[in-house]
Design a protein around this nucleic acid. Structure first.
Lengths: 225, 225
DNA sequence: CGTCAAATTAAGGTTGGCTTAAGGCTAAAA
DNA sequence: TTTTAGCCTTAAGCCAACCTTAATTTGACG
């Protein structure tokens, strides 16, 4: 999951970035509107986190501009405690949620999950697909109510598939999920992880589309097929 | 748990600070509204303790301002005997409780607990999770009705986990619980405490999520699994 | 049947977590 | 004030989990 963070305070930004990275998000960080604009024009993001107190000011028109340009990713604005009034204008301009600085990182993560979830039209943090259930908050994975333990990479891959059922995910895409797009891997690491996933969750979990990628298998029957 | 104390009388403040620190609270102390404002703009607190007789006066509008800014932490006001009348105005302005000076430290602690509990939407000071019960008021810990004695740090960690079941708590977060966020610990102290916790309460108490943090283990079965 | 993508397996290296023990600190007791 | 006991931090070594790499086998498709 790719997020764009627009925050000029290095310290706060670093905290957010390192915290969210641990949870498996890929956070791109920039400090000005201009950088943000150019980032948006070249990459796509699932969510924007925007500090209302940016040095080049005028965050409100920026929100309006971005939203009217057709960006459909939700925007979460951060506002200093002593000018919370701006939040109203920001929400009017099209922001989807706000948080007052300072905040607890856990709360930020919770809101991100809520926004992304809402944007994808989901009701809860649980994703289900046939006999398989995963919990995005606790990283629990269950097959027919049996808990299965996954490693970090396995988890990230499975999550990506669960978030995109009925879609063929290319190997490059999966690599970007694990490593960001500046991937440096020159091996079949992805395949090995997928192999482990199949081993843990059932041989039929994933269907390979030769030369294209992988997709959740409609015929998946659980651990022992 | 972080508290902000706004109290100009050094002596009283010191008493409160040292008393609450012993109980595991992190108390930040300031003497003026301005200091308080700046503290609120950089840190988050679970509760504010505010002396109504501050030298720069006008504590009432301060309460109103803070509350209207969207701060959701409860406010406990302290008032001297000879102007208890102010308490009404304070409560009207948004304060959540009051105490008349002088007071017993234990009573203060009890009120803090009540306010925080209410704010978190809990019913009682007893938290239960599988075979484990802890009492926030008495600091009792029981596994299957057997009392277990914990040290201060162990208690604080366990409390944090019990207050956040189903959530992965990162090592940094746990450090901030023990030391405040200006933590200077460059060691594995957390791990050692967790080790002791597991030793006392059962090896299966905590599940490690590699690279992310720790979470209460759904499969916890008690002391001997 | 030949070719190439994908699956499998095993090895090696790295990282992160667990465990233990020693020493220092603090607070209570003498 | 000195002593003492309990608690905490530090550091080091060990172990296991995890990831990547690479070699080999399998299987799809022309």
């Amino acid at each position: 999951m790719r997020l764009l963070l627009i925050e000029d305070d290095r310290l706060i930004a670093e905290g957010i970035v390192s915290g969210l990275k641990k949870l498996g998000y890929h956070v791109e960080h920039c400090t000005t509107q201009n950088q943000a604009t150019s980032a948006l024009s070249t990459d796509t993001f699932q969510l924007l986190i925007l500090d209302l107190g940016l040095p080049d000011g005028l965050a409100i028109p920026f929100i309006a501009k971005v939203k009217s340009a057709g960006l459909d990713a939700p925007i979460l604005v951060l506002t200093a405690w002593d000018d919370v009034d701006k939040k109203v204008a920001a929400l009017d301009a099209g922001a989807d949620d706000y948080m007052v600085k300072p905040f607890d990182l856990r709360e930020l993560e919770a809101r991100i999950r809520v926004l992304v979830r809402r944007h994808q039209g989901r009701q809860s943090d649980e994703l289900q697909w046939r006999n398989l259930t995963i919990d995005l908050a606790t990283q629990d994975v269950r097959v027919d109510d049996e808990v299965v333990t996954l490693t970090r990479r396995e988890w990230l891959l499975l999550k990506e598939f669960m978030l995109n059922p009925k879609r063929i995910l290319s190997r490059e895409h999966l690599e970007s999920v694990l490593y960001g797009w500046d991937s440096e891997v020159e091996s079949n690491a992805i395949e090995v992880h997928l192999h482990h996933l199949r081993k843990k969750l059932g041989r039929t979990l994933l269907r390979n589309v030769r030369g294209v990628g992988y997709i959740l298998n409609q015929d998946y029957q659980g651990k022992e097929a």
